[in-house]
């Protein structure tokens, strides 16, 4: 399983279009994320991929072959549902061992996974007493238990503390390194941004943008902030600021205590660096790119993109 594609997927529930001709491409060794506001169709898309929801229209292709998600394929799929829950009267270890038995995994391996997700000490406690973050960790353990080649995580960061997030990041890094297909849905793009390679933004059941974080930034063209530390000599500093303001029209700038901050369009970055080059008025330079969450907000304001 190296290449997974959903093509033109439409799902209707009564009069509500959960998905409208949605497309998604996933590749082995690439961590992909889908993001979108509530009701964008993220969870439905994941459930179509798992075969939990039947599409009215559209196809699922795995390695170039059109397939229907069935029992045999699900052997290679790990799934963490949103707000995962378990039978309350079981302990963490019992939950893990049940899924281990169902998936043909040894008890020892199940115990190791439980340890990996940081639940060894809570293994004998009833799931009823688990916090949301602990249930999320247990769910993550269940999802990776059989070392699936397709890992689907629905809002995996929900309720996780820093330790839990560290476990999640290590799982994502490991699956990426091993060439497995990973897809996660999220509301919090700023949190997952450093860990994902590709992002698809959904709105009202349709993908409105898709690409690497850098591609999405370029596509949206949000201003980049450049923080410049200027020399103590006022005359040289003033001359530099004047030169910048003249060279780059419609510049948004602020100056305070020897620090000059400008917000410029990505296309003006080159002009600015030319001005800085060799200019001793600038002692320090820092580029601050817009966060993926800002890109996401901007994309949601715009009409649909290709």
């Amino acid at each position: 399983m190296k290449d997974v594609r959903l093509r033109d997927v439409t799902v209707r529930f009564g009069n509500v279009h959960a998905l409208r001709a949605a497309n998604l491409s996933l590749t082995g060794g690439v961590v992909s994320a889908i993001a979108g506001p509530n009701g964008a169709g993220k969870s439905t898309l994941l459930q179509v991929l798992l075969g939990l929801v039947r599409a009215d229209h559209g196809t699922l292709e795995i390695d170039g072959v059109t397939v229907r998600m069935n029992e045999a394929l699900r052997r290679d799929v790990g799934y963490l549902p949103e707000a995962v829950a378990f039978a309350n009267n079981l302990t963490g270890r019992q939950v893990m061992r049940f899924f281990a038995f169902a998936r043909g995994v040894s008890r020892n391996h199940a115990d190791r996974v439980l340890e990996r997700v940081g639940l060894r000490d809570a293994a004998k406690r009833s799931v009823r007493g688990y916090s949301r973050g602990m249930r999320q960790r247990l769910g993550l353990g269940v999802a990776v238990l059989s070392d699936p080649r397709l890992l689907i995580l629905d809002e995996p960061t929900g309720g996780l503390d820093q330790e839990g997030l560290t476990v999640l990041w290590s799982v994502l890094a490991e699956y990426k390194q091993r060439g497995h297909v990973v897809l996660l849905s999220t509301h919090d793009l700023s949190l997952v941004e450093p860990r994902v390679d590709r992002v698809a933004i959904f709105r009202k059941g349709t993908g409105i943008a898709e690409g690497t974080p850098a591609e999405l930034r370029d596509h949206v063209g949000l201003p980049i902030r450049v923080d410049l530390s200027l020399t103590d000599e006022p005359s040289r500093a003033d001359a530099f600021v004047a030169a910048v303001e003249q060279a780059i029209p419609q510049l948004v700038a602020s100056r305070r205590n020897g620090c000059f901050s400008v917000s410029i369009k990505p296309s003006d970055v080159l002009d600015l660096t030319r001005l800085i080059g060799g200019n001793s008025a600038v002692t320090q330079l820092r580029f601050v790119e817009p966060g993926l969450d800002q890109v996401y907000e901007q994309l949601l304001k715009e009409p649909a993109h290709a």
């Binding site: 939990l52 029992e71 549902p81 378990f86 039978a87 769910g139």
Partner: peptide, 11 residues
């Protein structure tokens, strides 16, 4: 209880 999805994701 929101446990059905996890069960149906089994093979």
């Amino acid at each position: 209880r929101n446990t059905l999805g996890l069960l149906f994701s089994l093979p």
